Amino acid sequence: DYFTVDMEKGAKGFGFSIRGGREYKMDLYVLRLAEDGPAIRNGRMRVGDQIIEINGESTRDMTHARAIELIKSGGRRVRLLLKR
């Protein structure tokens, strides 16, 4: 199942961390959800969800650093296409 999650940044960021990336020879996944962060309050994202797109850009062969950069580059908002 594919689904989109739109979030607005909180005081401590978006409230999730990721693992994976090209340099680890793996796809990008949601690693952790911060307690009471925007990701957990949104209610749609879960640990283990695969991140397919960040702000419309495919994560295929994307490095971990580039993924972080893209998440931050959207300013106060981020849109993720996830797969569960």
Results as ranks from 00 to 15, higher is better:
Arg46Phe: 12
Ser73Tyr: 09
Arg22Ile: 05
Ala65Phe: 06
Val78Cys: 08
Gly37Ala: 07
Gly56Cys: 12
Gly15Lys: 01
Leu70Ile: 14
Asp36Asn: 12
Gly56Ile: 00
Thr4Asn: 12
Pro38Thr: 09
Arg32Tyr: 14
Lys83Glu: 15
Lys83Asp: 09
Ser17Asn: 07
Arg79Gly: 07
Arg66Trp: 06
Asp49Ala: 02
Gly21Arg: 02
Arg44Val: 14
Asp1Lys: 15
Leu70Tyr: 07
Gly15Asp: 03
Gln50Ile: 10
Arg32Leu: 11
Ile54Thr: 01
Leu33Gly: 03
Ile54His: 01
Val78Met: 08
Val5Gly: 01
Ile18Asp: 00
Ile54Lys: 00
Glu69Asp: 09
Leu31Cys: 15
Lys72Asn: 14
Tyr24Trp: 10
Arg22Cys: 04
Arg22Met: 06
Gly20Met: 02
Gly56Arg: 06
Lys25Gln: 10
Leu28Asn: 00
Arg22Asn: 11
Ile54Ala: 01
Thr59Val: 08
Arg79Thr: 14
Arg41Ile: 12
His64Leu: 09
Gly74Thr: 14
Gly56Lys: 06
Arg46Lys: 15
Gln50Ser: 11
Ile52Asp: 05
Ser58Lys: 10
Glu69Arg: 05
Ile68Trp: 15
Leu81Thr: 14
Met26Leu: 14
Leu80Met: 09
Gly10Asn: 15
Arg77Cys: 11
Leu31Asp: 14
Thr63Leu: 09
Ala65Met: 08
Gly74Tyr: 05
Arg79Gln: 08
Glu53Asn: 09
Ser58Asn: 08
Ala34Glu: 14
Gly21Trp: 01
Ala67Asn: 00
His64Arg: 12
Val30Arg: 00
Arg60Met: 09
Arg19Glu: 15
Gly10Ile: 01
His64Trp: 09
Ala65Pro: 06
Gly20Trp: 01
Gly15Glu: 03
Arg77Phe: 12
Lys25Tyr: 13
Val78Gln: 03
Arg22Leu: 06
Gly37Val: 09
Arg79Trp: 04
Tyr2Met: 05
Asn42Arg: 07
Ile52Met: 15
Gly21Val: 02
Ala39His: 05
Arg66Ile: 06
Ala39Phe: 06
Glu8Arg: 07
Ala34Pro: 06
Glu57Pro: 00
Glu53Arg: 08
Asp6Lys: 11
Asp6Val: 11
Ala65Thr: 10
Ile68Asp: 11
Tyr24Ser: 13
Arg79Ala: 12
Gly75Asn: 14
Gly48Asn: 11
Gly75Ser: 09
Asp49Gln: 06
Lys83Thr: 12
Arg41Leu: 09
Lys12Thr: 08
Arg46Met: 11
Asp1Leu: 15
Pro38His: 07
Lys25His: 09
Leu33Lys: 03
Arg44Leu: 14
Glu53Asp: 07
Glu23Arg: 03
Gly43Phe: 05
Ile71Gly: 01
Glu69Met: 12
Ile68Thr: 13
Tyr24Phe: 07
Arg76Asn: 10
Ser17Tyr: 15
Leu80Pro: 01
Ile68Glu: 10
Ser73Glu: 13
Tyr2Phe: 15
Ile71Tyr: 01
Asp6Gly: 04
Tyr24Cys: 11
Phe14Cys: 06
Ala34Gly: 11
Met26Gly: 12
Gly43Ala: 12
Gly15Tyr: 00
Arg66Asp: 07
Leu28Ile: 12
Lys12Ser: 11
Val78Glu: 00
Gly48Glu: 07
Arg76Ala: 13
Ser73Gly: 13
Arg32Ser: 14
Lys83Arg: 14
Phe3Ile: 15
Gly21Cys: 02
Gly15His: 01
Gly13Gln: 04
Lys9Arg: 06
Asp27Gln: 13
Glu69Lys: 05
Asp61Leu: 08
Gly13Ser: 08
Asp49Pro: 01
Asp36Trp: 05
Arg66Gln: 06
Arg60Glu: 12
Gly13Val: 02
Asp27Pro: 12
Arg66Val: 06
Gly75Gln: 11
Asp36Gln: 12
Arg84Trp: 03
Val47Phe: 04
Lys25Glu: 13
Gly20Pro: 02
Leu82Tyr: 01
Leu81Val: 14
Thr4Asp: 02
Leu81Asn: 13
Ala67Arg: 01
Ser73Ile: 08
Phe16Trp: 02
Ile54Leu: 07
Asp49Thr: 02
Arg44Asp: 14
Gly74Cys: 13
Met62Phe: 09
Ala39Lys: 04
Met26Cys: 11
Asn55Glu: 03
Ile52Gln: 08
Asp61Cys: 07
Ser73Pro: 02
Tyr24Thr: 15
Met7Thr: 03
Ala65Cys: 06
Ala34Lys: 10
Lys25Arg: 08
Arg19Asp: 15
Ser73Val: 12
Asp49Arg: 01
Arg77Lys: 12
Met45Asp: 01
Glu35Ile: 10
Arg46Cys: 11
Val47Gln: 08
Ile51Asp: 00
Asn55Leu: 02
Arg41Val: 11
Met62Lys: 05
Met26Glu: 15
Leu28Tyr: 02
Met7Val: 11
Leu33Val: 12
Ala39Cys: 05
Arg60Tyr: 11
Ile51His: 00
Gly74Lys: 11
Val5Tyr: 03
Gly48Val: 01
Arg60Ser: 13
Ser58Arg: 09
Ile68Val: 11
Arg84Asp: 05
Ile71Lys: 02
His64Lys: 08
Leu80Gln: 01
Arg41Gln: 12
Asn55Gly: 04
Glu57Leu: 10
Gln50Met: 11
